[in-house]
Structures are given as structure tokens and as C-alpha cells.
Design a protein around this nucleic acid. Structure first.
Length: 299
DNA sequence: AAATTACAGCCGGTTACCTCA
DNA sequence: TATGAGGTAACCGGCTGTAAT
């Protein structure tokens, strides 16, 4: 789905001026292989257990996947019982072991208008769920109907996480099946997936920021080195004797990653400009697919 | 074929509740 | 015990894609 693709791309910017190493990182990332430059310093949150794999988007879009283990015994292709809605409602209520909440959809707003249409939503939601604590006074509502916070059980979270690993989005049938299995309302499953995607994206943003920060630091260091080289070259130019003793013009190569005319490779993974003293003594590095440039000092 | 409308799903931002140090 | 911070379920409004008209 488009959303998932957007998420994949995220902040994976095209760092044209970055070194080859950086590009490889980005390339790896874009291939959805989770190879984070430095995730170690990132806080590990509960939901990040083993299930956290931001790049592990195994077809979050198609939903045409085999039913995962947790859906075994549940035919996700079977349409939900509509005739037995009342029963299902009761069933859901009863099954909601850790759902004392009966948190309810809002009466107002688009969401509610959607869910009020059982045909459209194919929803199990019962009448109580259509009553919102929002916009309803406490007098007529009572404190027990205020927005209660459901805490999902470990098992429920585990199943949801497993499902999320399989696909980051659910089709309606999968949502229904999962909800029924967990004793939750489809809306709750939907909300959980939305929040889960948001958390994943947030975490990915943090990782990307960290990566870009390091990239920036590397570039700063490289820039510093280059400035130093420029100064050295300028100083050399000011001493004519040394300048005239230099070897004849040679061919320099273009660094394929930074697209600069360069000499030997630096420790940073880049090609540093050749040292002044051996500028013409070194034979040029073979040109792979870069652009060769002839550099002839002015007399 | 193009424009309009309704609907469903998702996202970003926010709120409200819960847990824990 | 009180409290503040962090985590997260739930909500809202907006946007987008799709199907029907």
C-alpha cells in the first residue's frame, strides 16, 4: 500500500555527497534489511521486543498472505457472521476478559458515522459502543462511561505483534478474525495497528536522524581535511622552486561517490587530494567508471 | 469521458488514562 | 502518599483512493 511505501522511504534521503559507505547504508535500508548504523544508543521500548523490525515490511500492502499461526483455525476468508450480530456482540463482550472498558466510539465525527453503518463496516460493534463519553455530560453518562483505558494483556499484545510482523495493515476480514480471536472489537484492533505503525515510524525517524547526524559529522570532518589540503596546496604554490620540481602533469580520477577530482583513498572512505609532495609522483589510480580529468598546473 | 459524491482507510496530532519510579 | 514522566489506547480532523452515479 502507498502508506507502507511512504513509511519505507521515510527519511532515507539521497545523500549525493555522502561517501560510498553512507550510500551503502542507505542502499541497505532501502532494501528493507534492517541494518541500522547505530541503534545501540536508542532506548528499547516494550513494544520493541523482538517484534520491532521497522524495515521488515513483508508485504504490508497486499494482504494476500497465508494466514499466520495465530489465525490458524480462523478462516479469514469467511465473511463475518452478520445475521448473528446480537450474539456476536454478546460474545465479544463476554470474551473481552481484560476489556472492562467498553471504550466507545464517538457519536460525532466521521468515524462514528462510518461505524453506525453496519452494512458498510460489517462491524460487530454493539449499541453501547456507539455511545461516546465525549460530548456527553457526566450526569447522564455516569463516571463509568468516561473514557476508560484498556490495557491489553501480554497474550493479546503478543498476538498483535505477531500479526504486525506478518503485515503492517489488515484487511477487514483479518481484522475481524483477529478481533474475534482476541476478544476485542475490530475498531480496537484497527486502532492498535494504527498506533503501532505510528510508533514504528517514529522509531524509524529517530534512527534516521541518528544516521544523518553521523553522516553530517563525517562530512564535516572530511571538509576539514579538504580545507587543510587546500591550504597546503596554496602554500606550495607560493614556493616556486618546489613547484617547478614537480613531476609532469598526470591524470586524476573522479571519486565515484563524492564526484570530486581526487587522489588516493582516505581513511574516511573518501579519496583525499594527493599530498603536495607526491602529487605528480604517484601513478593515477585506475578509473573505474568515474570521469578522468587532466590537471596541468599553470606555468 | 469527465465531474461529483460517498465511503473507507490511513495518518498526524492530540487527549486521557495507566503505570511506575 | 503524592507526583511527574513516559507509554499507549482512543479519538478527531484531514487527506487520499476508489467505486458508484
Amino acid at each position: 500500500m502507498i502508506a507502507a511505501e511512504k513509511e519505507d522511504l521515510g527519511l532515507s534521503l539521497s545523500l549525493a555527497s555522502c561517501s560510498q559507505i553512507h550510500r551503502e547504508h542507505l542502499s541497505v535500508k532501502l532494501n528493507n534489511v534492517y541494518s541500522v548504523p547505530s541503534p545501540n544508543n536508542l532506548q528499547k521500548l516494550p513494544w520493541m521486543t523482538d517484534a520491532f523490525s521497522p524495515f521488515d515490511h513483508r508485504d504490508s500492502t497486499s494482504c494476500q498472505v497465508a494466514a499466520p499461526f495465530f489465525l490458524r483455525g480462523i478462516d479469514v476468508n469467511r465473511p463475518p457472521k452478520v445475521a448473528g450480530r446480537e450474539d456476536d456482540d454478546q460474545e465479544d463482550e463476554d470474551a473481552g476478559v481484560c476489556s472492562p472498558n467498553s471504550t466507545i466510539s464517538s457519536v460525532t465525527g466521521k468515524r462514528s458515522s462510518r461505524e453506525l453503518d453496519p452494512a458498510a463496516a460489517g462491524s460487530y460493534e454493539n449499541e453501547a459502543e456507539r455511545t461516546s463519553s465525549r460530548g456527553v455530560s457526566d450526569e447522564e453518562d455516569g463516571p463509568e462511561n468516561s473514557r476508560k483505558k484498556l490495557r491489553l494483556s501480554k497474550d493479546q499484545s503478543a498476538v498483535l505483534e505477531e500479526s504486525f510482523r506478518e503485515h503492517h495493515t489488515l484487511n477487514p476480514k483479518q481484522k475481524q478474525a483477529l478481533a474475534k480471536q482476541l476478544g476485542l472489537r475490530p475498531r480496537q484492533v484497527e486502532v492498535w495497528f494504527q498506533n503501532r505503525r505510528a510508533r514504528t515510524k517514529l522509531k524509524q525517524t529517530e534512527i534516521d536522524c541518528e544516521f544523518l547526524k553521523r553522516c553530517c559529522e563525517n562530512l564535516t570532518e572530511e571538509n576539514r581535511q579538504l580545507q587543510k589540503e587546500v591550504q597546503e596546496l596554496r602554500a606550495l604554490k607560493l614556493s616556486p622552486q618546489l613547484y617547478m620540481q614537480m613531476a609532469p602533469p598526470t591524470t586524476l580520477t573522479m571519486c565515484p561517490s563524492c564526484e570530486r577530482v581526487t587522489g588516493p583513498t582516505s581513511s574516511l572512505g573518501h579519496h583525499l587530494p594527493p599530498k603536495p609532495m607526491n602529487l605528480w609522483a604517484q601513478s593515477p589510480a585506475p578509473v573505474a567508471h568515474g570521469v578522468a580529468a587532466t590537471f596541468r598546473p599553470r606555468a
